[in-house]
Design a protein around this nucleic acid. Structure first.
Length: 594
DNA sequence: AAACACGGCGCG
DNA sequence: AAAGCGCGCCGTGTTT
């Protein structure tokens, strides 16, 4: 293991999690290849501060002959803390490692990738070393004023743990060429993601405040209406009170029960069903209450996360999901509500609250139909592949199979509805839906649905064969392997999920690689004036300076080219470009050829 | 007070 | 036997 000899593990201690907010790093620890531990406080005596700062500065400045690869557990956090403390970006060329990524790549479904859990499991290091620090903090202290001796002991172990994990896990990454490529890609992505978090997204603060004010009024109004009907004040968030309102007071029937506690189900699907047979005003009041109160709390949380300039810096976890997808938290900006796409008749136009920075517009580039394209590719479903290549509608053949003449003769809304149901089945079937769900989804009696399902099987043997194939792999080996060579572990007793993991993980692999290349292109071609802000599973959000709008066509032609440049797939990828000049709800198609 | 489970719901 | 999946966050209610 000579190659590892110079490695040094590195762990930071901060006053909290909001590094783009008030929190700061106050100490760090390192552990050398030989187990030598150094605890470096950044507070206290001037002399010590100077020494420890210069060691830090050295670690993150690339020097060809001296540099030691820095090993971290969840490097995005430590690097972000370090950059804030140093007041500069860490050097591009500094080699670093991340045991958190290693763990994700080697065991995607592990219940915990936390340092303490992994170190206990792999090296038998007990997890109780932080109890003294925890109890100090619980008694009113905070992490930065824990007595140094206590803190030293605590830090000592985390640096040691990280080094040990690296010794256990990294050789397993190195042993596979595919894992090595994935690992390097993930490390590159950490830096790309840091630049997005740092830049952040702009909230239209006054507009958000106005919207919250109106929603709060509306919530009061709807609670009054419910009180008029019920004869007393009801809190619809309380299950017992809501059940009383719906099933005792309004005498509505119980249609379903919840999975675990077997209570009457009262979600929006049930309420929609009840609404059809029994258009009781209280049902609408419940939908209004839920949507509006949730809406105002979500908007309030966006306000709380915004800094003085209205900028939100989310935490973008690069391996947030078991399928290797990214996720966003504090706040989650991947689920900002849209208008008019769901069963909710009272949507909140929350996307109106997000705006480009002054002097910028936002571009949204999304892969069109990437999920179906990948399904068709993995399934080798030639008929659909040809339709996609020729720009036809890949959901039309399914519509004809499921609805026959009814679809042939349908126009307008009905045609769209039938196509929509068929489209859902094009996903649901490869993902494991059975005849019962097919009939339900198509709105047909069970026997008819089953018969059409059989027709579909005959027409699309590739698509229908994919799930059994993946399920068999899961049962045999426990994982599915994406075209990038990533192993996605699937619970063996849920082998039908294999196809879903495969598609989701492949799309994530495409988007991640695209992000790295696009980031590097934008740095090179625009000196970082055009920036990527946020990934949303099959979409990238950018900001673009208005003064350079004349170049937008040229730049996004290249971005699009990079995004779809994955020759390993037989089905072509496609990207749609939209521009938002005022807010995210008013997006318009943007023609990059002009 | 903190941690957890659950139902519910937004996005992909 | 039958089964679409992945997240994060909220409010309520229970456990520690």
């Amino acid at each position: 293991m000579v190659a590892m000899a110079k490695d040094i593990s590195y762990d930071t201690e901060t006053t909290g999690l909001y590094l783009h907010g008030p929190h700061e790093m106050f100490s760090y620890s390192t552990c050398g290849w030989d187990g030598e531990i150094d605890i470096c406080r950044l507070d206290g005596s001037k002399k010590r501060q100077v020494a420890n700062n210069s060691k830090l500065d050295e670690m993150f400045t690339w020097k060809p002959q001296f540099s030691s690869p820095v090993v971290m557990h969840n490097s995005k956090f430590d690097l972000t803390a370090t950059e804030k403390h140093l007041g500069r970006h860490v050097a591009e060329d500094v080699e670093f490692h991340d045991t958190y990524m290693q763990s994700h790549i080697l065991q995607s479904n592990h219940p915990s990738h936390r340092l303490k859990d992994l170190a206990w499991e792999l090296a038998g290091i007990p997890k109780d070393d932080e109890s003294a620090v925890k109890s100090f903090v619980a008694e009113g202290g905070n992490y930065s004023n824990v007595p140094e001796q206590l803190m030293d002991e605590y830090q000592r172990w985390d640096a040691e743990r990280t080094m040990l994990l690296h010794r256990f896990l990294y050789p397993k990454i190195q042993a596979s060429a595919a894992f090595s490529e994935i690992y390097q890609m993930e490390l590159d992505l950490v830096k790309t993601t840091m630049r997005m978090e740092e830049r952040g997204l702009m909230l239209n603060v006054p507009r958000t405040e106005k919207m919250i004010y109106k929603l709060e009024q509306d919530v009061e109004g709807v609670l009054d209406k419910i009180e008029e009907f019920a004869g007393e004040r009801v809190n619809p968030n309380k299950t017992s009170q809501l059940a009383w309102l719906l099933f005792d007071k309004a005498k509505l029937p119980i249609l379903e029960r919840t999975a675990k506690s077997k209570q009457p189900k009262m979600d929006k699907n049930v309420i929609a069903q009840l609404r059809e047979s029994n258009p009781h005003a209280v049902l609408d009041n419940i939908l209004q209450f839920r949507s509006w109160s949730r809406g105002s709390t979500m908007l309030q949380s966006y306000l709380d996360y915004a800094d003085g300039e209205g900028i939100i810096h989310p935490d973008i976890r690069t391996c947030g999901a078991k399928t290797s997808r990214q996720s966003s938290s504090r706040p989650n900006l991947q689920n900002v509500q849209k208008e008019g796409v769901l069963l909710n008749p009272y949507p909140i136009p929350a996307r109106q609250c997000f705006r480009p920075r002054p002097g910028y517009v936002n571009f949204h580039l999304d892969y069109s139909g990437i999920e179906l394209r990948l399904l068709v590719d993995y399934a080798g479903e030639d008929k659909l592949r040809k339709i996609i290549i020729n720009g036809g509608d890949p959901h039309e053949p399914a519509s004809l199979v499921f609805f026959r003449d009814r679809f042939k003769n349908a126009r307008g809304d009905l045609r769209a509805t039938l196509r929509g149901a068929s489209k859902n089945m094009n996903f649901a079937i490869p993902y494991g839906a059975a005849a019962y769900k097919v009939a339900l989804g198509l709105g047909m009696p069970f026997e008819m649905g089953k018969e059409r399902f059989e027709d579909y099987r005959a027409q699309f043997p590739g698509l229908c064969g994919l799930n059994p194939r993946m399920a068999a792999l899961v049962r045999e080996q426990g994982y599915v392997e994406t075209k990038f060579g990533r192993w996605l572990w699937v619970p063996r007793n849920k082998s039908y999920m294999g196809t879903n993991y495969l598609i989701q993980g492949t799309a994530a692999g495409i988007l991640k690689r695209a992000q790295i290349k696009v980031h590097s292109y934008l740095q090179r071609a625009t000196s970082g004036e055009v920036r990527m802000l946020l990934p949303i599973h099959d979409e990238l959000v950018f900001e673009f300076p208005r003064k350079r709008l004349g170049e937008a066509g040229h730049i996004f032609r290249e971005v699009r080219r990079i995004m779809i440049d994955f020759p390993m797939f037989d089905v072509p990828l496609e990207v749609d470009v939209q521009v938002a000049t005022f807010d995210w709800s008013a997006k318009k198609m943007f023609n990059i050829l002009v």
